[in-house]
Design a protein around this nucleic acid. Structure first.
Lengths: 348, 348
DNA sequence: AAGATTTATTGGATCGTTCCAAACGAGTCA
DNA sequence: TGACTCGTTTGGAACGATCCAATAAATCTT
């Protein structure tokens, strides 16, 4: 069954031409005569020829048409949507992608980057695991392989990055909760050793200070950035002597968990307590109550990151480009604004 | 910057040996002298050599250490968890994976399969898009590349498959709702042109018939297998002259949507209405009410599928193997059993 | 009709690795 | 001393596609 592969030489023989001509046909070169092209294509179809990209990639001028994508947690909808956005662009551009999940493990990350490098990726998009250092990309950049960092920044890495405006988003969300009359606003979820969390907390704090409210550190509760983490965080927050009346959550997964946790203690999110998420995953719209969230449009971000990488791959010139995408607050029901504040902002 | 690649020849020169010896060192062959090995390894480190797998794969005896994974909808947690399970096993086995999302498009699926084939995958795991035919795998199997179909079966495909016991799961779930006293039980979500949906509906029907209840087709409501689809399905179901008091949902995403839809009309899932999902995604445990669901353990299924494929890749011999994994009903709160039925089944 | 030009086609070297058969030096045996 | 090991090492021919320079054939110039 496992017959030896059909090669250009077999096609050449069958079509009565040389392998060079077959190669030209494969590349849709205008140099070849129409009849010859037809003969060759017929032979290709007949023999069931499969192009061997590995062989073609040997010549160092060629591009492998493979990119690597590394994310931390694919079970988080945010990353899943991000990956889907990248996938769309890459597929359309004729690329395939290696995708690896690190689960925040630096070892795994190092391994997959090395493995992808050996397999000849022409570019990498990575949402780095916590603790990643600029040096981790050294082997790739030294080989002239463009890298785009998404979501989380790495200090000192001389590669491109695509981040969301965490500070502005958190600030706007907090201001929104303040405008609804809340004075005890918590920040729930996330680990404060990541830049992302720090930036969001920073925006949150500044909004409070601006409103003349003393930031209370007890209202900042760390937890895993997951649904379960959200449940845990809100439980701790509600045990405070002066519990919050609203919360900005580290991300949407935490926000869903916070809604769960509130309901578990008979508090209805959106009516008795204001909840705002961060990310703008698809479920945020469908959920009840629909989640008010700082939308970063994960799929769109994935698409942009992919385009950014493709641009660098195609240009051949690797020059780091730092891009911060703006975010927008999608006001829905979970913040409690729907009744009082209807129509002031778009809810799509 | 983009210096020409460092090759075995460069290493050989630097270490004062031949390229053959370097090759032996790379393969950790016992033939080479310890001192030589040390010299070579030093040179490798010093020059920053990166193994070129593409070149090695040219020789037809070699295995590419790449597998392809194709799924329908990565934004569905079920598939995301499935992919993560596969990723774990593949990473540990030293494989990297191409991952592609088809979004149920047959064209995309055809393209990505062809593209992966060109790139030299040594195996493929696929959750086929609706409408996939056995012939779509022909090019791969003809080349001796093992294929494992997961989740959805394809009639007549002479490749391995790993499916969950949809019939038994749906039947058990329905029986459970019946045992709680429900008589008007709906089946919500999914498209009835997929085998998965048909099997689940079949199990649902048989359980009703067994209990002496006439199956009412109006209670079977098709919709997209997503959270939004669940909202839509339950809305239609509740408009019936005799609305259901409980529902078995096509999958967990639909079940979450059904909970949302119920709440939107003031019906509390788990108290006023029994909801059972299918899949057993992680969020099912964290949600409030925790989702009663037919757990197929998506990550475990992904791991098993990966192991199945690896076994075939390593054995060299491709013989189709059909495996049906059993499922178990995880009784939690959303079905309303928690109060009446506490402790009868495990809830983990 | 000879030279210049255009249009098609082609051999061979090349990419980086593996693998085989051969060769090497050093020791062993008869 | 020659034949024979044994443990290491090594050229060179693959693998399958690309690309350059060269060629062949057809067309155009004058």
């Amino acid at each position: 069954m496992t017959r030896s592969r059909v090669t250009v030489i077999d096609i050449a023989r069958a079509a009565g031409v040389s392998k060079s001509t077959v190669s030209l046909v494969l590349q849709a070169s205008p140099l070849v005569n129409e009849q010859t092209r037809a003969k060759v294509n017929a032979a290709i179809r007949e023999l069931g020829y499969v192009y061997n990209r590995g062989a073609a990639n040997l010549r160092q001028t060629a591009s492998s048409k493979i990119v690597g994508i590394v994310v931390n947690d694919l079970t988080n909808s945010f990353f899943a949507e991000l990956a889907v956005g990248m996938d769309m662009v890459m597929q359309s551009a004729g690329f395939v992608q290696f995708l690896a999940n690190t689960g925040e493990s630096l070892d795994r990350q190092r391994e997959v980057i090395a493995s992808m490098h050996e397999h000849g990726i022409s570019g990498l998009i990575i949402s780095p695991a916590r603790g990643t250092e600029a040096a981790d990309f050294k082997p790739l950049t030294a080989a002239g392989i463009p890298v785009v960092i998404v979501v989380r920044n790495i200090a000192g890495a001389k590669v491109s990055s695509l981040l969301s405006d965490n500070y502005a988003g958190a600030r706007e969300a907090t201001e929104h909760l303040l405008s609804l009359g809340h004075r005890r606003i918590a920040f729930l979820g996330g680990f404060s050793d990541t830049t992302v969390a720090l930036e969001r907390v920073h925006g949150y704090r500044d909004a409070l200070v601006q409103a003349g409210i003393a930031a209370d550190d007890a209202l900042i509760v760390n937890s895993a950035p997951s649904r379960a983490g959200g449940v845990a965080a809100v439980e701790r927050a509600m045990l405070l002597a002066e519990p919050p009346t609203a919360a900005l959550c580290f991300n949407d997964a935490v926000a869903f968990g916070v809604c769960d946790g509130l309901r578990a203690r008979g508090v209805e999110p959106g009516r008795d307590f204001g909840v705002v998420g961060f990310d703008g995953v698809i479920e945020a719209q469908a959920a009840v109550p629909a989640l008010t969230t700082v939308s970063v449009d994960p799929q769109g971000m994935g698409r942009r990151a992919a385009q950014m990488l493709l641009k660098q791959i195609n240009s051949g010139r690797v020059e780091a480009e730092a891009m911060v995408t703006s975010v927008r607050l999608a006001v829905r029901q979970s913040c409690g604004a729907a009744m009082k504040d209807m129509g002031r902002r778009n809810t799509a």
